[in-house]
């Protein structure tokens, strides 16, 4: 899923400062799952903002609404009546949702209420970790299902750097060394021979480095 975290209240206050009537629009898929912008977070943020604005002596009307996904037009249309009643929209979707919304409503300013951080998994309750950078050329088959492009701080493809100690990454003792994980896993799978293999330079053309990407599925086009 896409993981994000809500912006600090002070920043959100600044972002919405020019408006007196705003819609806080939640996103009910990824953002709900990572507790950044589902229905519950919309309600909590709306109350906090109302309180904060009242304390500052600022008049504001806040409407709350959540749709299933802000990255799909079909759902975006459901929010059209609410959007039209307000001067601006504070979107609690990921960056893709914010942009899809902006594309859908040409005359209404759409502002981000969360910082989109990564594609990740729920490691355990309350902890999300980044696992994929969407490079467009997945080679998890040779790395034992652990991605060094995303999880090694130096994107090393040919083994751990000299800073791997006790299974941890040199840049943060809380972070696992991806290469230690890869080696442990390949050992368990009996695939240690993979480690001797020279991995040539990565082709980054399929990644964001090659420019904004578009996926065309002609078989699904109408």
């Amino acid at each position: 899923m896409i993981v994000a975290e809500q912006k600090p209240l002070s920043e959100i206050k600044e972002i919405i400062a020019p408006y007196k009537k705003i819609l806080i629009l939640g996103c009910g898929t990824c953002m709900k799952t990572c507790f950044a912008g589902g229905e519950d977070e919309v309600a909590v943020l709306a109350s906090a903002l109302r309180l904060a604005c009242k304390k500052d002596g600022k008049e504001i009307e806040i409407e709350e609404f959540t749709i299933e996904r802000q990255c799909e037009d079909e759902f975006i249309q459901e929010s059209a009546p609410a959007v039209s009643r307000n001067e601006g929209v504070l979107s609690l979707a990921c960056g893709a949702g914010v942009q899809a919304l902006a594309r859908g409503f040409a005359r209404t300013p759409v502002m981000p209420g969360v910082n989109t951080t990564f594609i990740g998994v729920l490691e355990k309750q309350g902890i999300f970790t980044e696992e994929c950078s969407g490079c467009g050329d997945c080679r998890l088959d040779i790395f034992g299902g652990i991605c060094p492009v995303t999880r090694c701080a130096k994107k090393l493809l040919n083994g751990p750097c000299g800073g791997s100690q006790n299974g941890k990454c040199e840049i943060n003792p809380e972070t696992d060394c991806a290469w230690q994980l890869i080696i442990d896993r390949l050992k368990a799978l009996g695939q240690m021979h993979s480690l001797r293999r020279y991995i040539p330079p990565k082709n980054w053309r399929t990644s964001l480095s090659g420019g904004p990407r578009k996926l065309v599925r002609e078989d699904h086009m109408i």
Binding site: G159, P160, G162, S164, Q165, Q180, I183, D184, L195, Y198
Partner: peptide, 14 residues
Amino acid sequence: FADPFEYRVIRLAK
């Protein structure tokens, strides 16, 4: 002196 120790020689070979 870095870990995993047993991999250090493989890395040298590479």
